[in-house]
Write a protein that binds this DNA or RNA. Sequence first.
RNA 1: GCUCGAGUGGUGGAAUUGGUAGACACGUUGGACUUAAAAUCCAAUGGACAUUAGUCCGUAUGGGUUCAAGUCCCAUCUCGAGUACCA
Length: 1026
Amino acid sequence: MQYNFNEIEAKWQKYWAENQTFKAENNSDKEKFYVLDMFPYPSGAGLHVGHPLGYIASDIYARYKRHKGFNVMHPQGYDSFGLPAEQYAIQTGQHPAITTAENITTYRRQLDQIGFSFDWSREVRTSDPKYYKWTQWIFIQIFNSWYNKDTDKAEDISSLVAVFEKEGNASINAVCDEDIAIFSSEEWKSFDSKKQQEILLQYRLTYLAETEVNWCPALGTVLANDEIVNGVSERGGHPVVRKKMTQWSMRISAYAQRLLDGLEKIDWPQPLKDSQTNWIGRSQGASATFKVNDHNAVIEVFTTRPDTIFGVSFMTLAPEHELVLQITTPEQKAEVEAYIEATAKRSERDRMADVKTISGAFTGAYAEHPFSKEPIPIWIGDYVLAGYGTGAVMSVPCGDQRDYDFAKHFNIPIPNIFEGVDISEEAFADKSKTVIANSDFLNGLPYKKAMKLAIYELEKLGQGEGKINYRLRDAVFSRQRYWGEPFPVYYVDGMPQMIAAEHLPIALPEVEKYLPTETGEPPLGNAEVWAWCTKENKVVHNSEINNATVWPLELNTMPGWAGSSQYFNRYMDPTNNNEIFSKEAMNYWQDVDLYIGGSEHATGHLLYSRFWQKFMFDRGFVPKDEFAKKLINQGMITGTSAFVYRVEFSIESAFNPEHDSDMNDDDIRLFSEFEKNLTSKIGSLFVPKSYVDKEYGDLEKILNNSLFNNQIAKEWSDYVLNKFEISEDQVYLKFQHLNPIHADVSLVSVTDQLDIEAFKNWREEYKNAVFILEDGNVYDSKSFPEDKWRGSFIVGREVEKMSKSKYNVVNPDEICAEYGADSLRLYEMFLGPLEQSKPWNTAGITGTHSFLKKLWRLYFDDNGAKFTDTEPTKDNLKTLHKTIKKVEEDIANFSFNTSVSTFMICVNELSTQKCTSKSVLEALAILVSPYAPHIAEELWSQLGNTASISTAPFPTFDASHLVESSKEYPISFNGKMRFKLELPLDMSKDQIEEVVMAHEKTQQQLQGRTPKKVIIVPGKIVNIVG
RNA sequence: GCUCGAGUGGUGGAAUUGGUAGACACGUUGGACUUAAAAUCCAAUGGACAUUAGUCCGUAUGGGUUCAAGUCCCAUCUCGAGUACCA
């Protein structure tokens, strides 16, 4: 009986689908286990072999947990809103919903063929109105909430209104906009509704604010930082300007500290936690205010080093700082304005990339030092960023390198306030070695004490306080796109109103064009039916807007992360139309036990999701304030690109017709045209990898020899030679350089041979290309009609990111067809540690494929089944239990690559032992089944079982089968292993020493010397020193 | 620059607390079977010398600790990832 993997895999995939084998129930006596993958964006290119890596790992874990008796939920869905479908719509007019649906069909087919144990009954799609209804619902909940710092959680906005009504806002301790005026309860009651709404908006967890965007006038659209290269748009190279727009923002900054604290209780990779920590960027220090001389203004700064306040010799404001124009003196005005203009021209990226150039301008104004009352010059400089802290710094050149460089550049004094430190070359920033000097009341104090005292004195003056600053900024939540969730928002007199939850979803309107409108409004501005009727509670035609009962709807849509920030909770109860999820479902599933996905989402999805989860927790919707207990980052599978080397050359001749002949002008012109024509007629000339290392001269010689053996070149050169009566050696190929060109990896054999015919047919421009083979001969299709690989042409290889543009994408469909899904699953795991990035090499898959064939032959030969009811031998049991132990340890450590090796060893051993014992083979099938589920199901059913193998309990490890009575000791001399000696394990140290010392090989090694020392570690090693 | 991670055969990688370096595969070479190929099986495969035995070198480099170091410590180099003037 043959291992017919195609048939077996199709059969079991059908069985699982029909029997809903992996459907998880929302209540069960079993313990729950929730295994989650990051759901994919269904791109038009489909899956490549790098994509399923994480899914295979999570699938192994999910299947293992089922064998261990857990009720496992392993859902999958699609993050189906996004830019590519929208851009395709702009180009072709095809509705993004259609593109998305087609792509999902491809994805589903590709996922199904790999044999995942997904519970497809729980599938979600973020672009499905039934799903985004709940994204809109969450937005409304966030809008109706404010953050109470006293209780340190989000509360319903009604609790805030209650306080306003009772006592005004003076005692409110909220995360809110800055500079909210204080009002009393009487004043609050006297405000009209619009004024009250304006005030509340300043407290809500999502609010409207003016934020800067990258606006590209030519494209009429907003661009992400990634879409801008060197200050112009990536598409088309149009100029980009900074523009203020009113947009929704989320007050994620309210959660900065809790997002930081929460990291301690979740089992996520340390590098990922580090990047979230850096992103949140907590720094402890003080805020201080400096009075500006001759102006009724103060500059507020944040500093982490209040202890160095006496070292301040100037202040620096960001060029965009609001005070700059106000305080600049008439004499400095021209210089300052020129500098501001120059800065505005540089994009934020440019400004940040260029660390070396020091630039700035003096405003002419002075501030007053809070303690010494000395005047301090105020400068502007673009190393200070408007978006961080207060956009102003107190510059302490002796203690900060950037301040130091700035001071040196502009000849500003650098007072030294550190005891025993030389600052003539660079600033001194080592807090732990700091002792303050020349600083009045701080003299002689170390960093910590000086910092405390400085803050205390600042507070006494009323010019500062201790402060914690976070880098994390509020998240902009509006996008000027079509293919995203519409907001459930309409505007009354410019004030945003939420549509009541019972009227959701507010579905995306149809538009004619997916581009922004001519007036620069978002694409939804093109919609004709996009107004809200408060009487009928439905979306109506824009013409009905009367600003009484019918109002305009919000034109922005939500960002990509909206739909992905709660999808893991929706999976618990995905078809519930009345609630985002039922209390029962949430109470049963609680949170994600294992989440697997890429680390590129560290500061995006994984931070926003934690934020929303904490919000949902505060408002009592979810029982856990962290959504995923454990997270694993799978590494990237890189591609192995193939290169052919194009010879850049020209045909030249040593023959100069003007001097060497009596040609007329016409012939001379004709001749030079022949030279050119010959070059282009030969067209592309390719050489294999081995030519890269050849000497310049050798290479040119080979090329010339080959070239004139080539038919095309010969015909042409003969023609030229005859026509002008010049000798052959006077026309030659001049070599310039080799240019590596990507060749599609599907045109290359596993032994790196190029299929030249296929390559020529791959692209029109290579149709007539000439190939010089390893042996220096020119490839001729007629000489190799039988064997396409015989013309030896070896390509170069290089590891790069797997991408379409590099022609190194390997499609899982072909792998599944040729080797089967089980081979693919095993191979992806076998490649290396899950979290590591590693190169794909299709050639290696024969290893796991032949392992599966060997496994199959343990159960079947040509005559059919081999298994019998015979008792297992001692060796059989030893092999089996060794394998159980190792595989369980490996799964616990997510070390799937080593468990594949373990299976190989196990099968090799059982084959050698000629094991036919059914009990052993049954256990083996279960062990393998999480990794290679199709073959395992087939073996299981052939062994006579009727239920799916996924219901079988995992074999239990029995240590008694591994008990050894003896050990082959390595005998080392001075740490070097010289020979091995089999000794009983119950031998005492003394007995071992006696036997080892008496051994003839020991004496031979010692050559009469007496050892200084004999180290014996029972069960491990013997080392003889001396 | 900073933070984190990593450097092991021709290649991917293994080596759980310091205890036989190179498991398991790929590739390569030789052999068996075959008209031939594929498939399968067997053998060899870190390097050098010696080809019986064996010796020396070897986990990026240089030092150190130890009976014993891929593993621990110090310094240096290289690569990768993240971050970006964070006051």
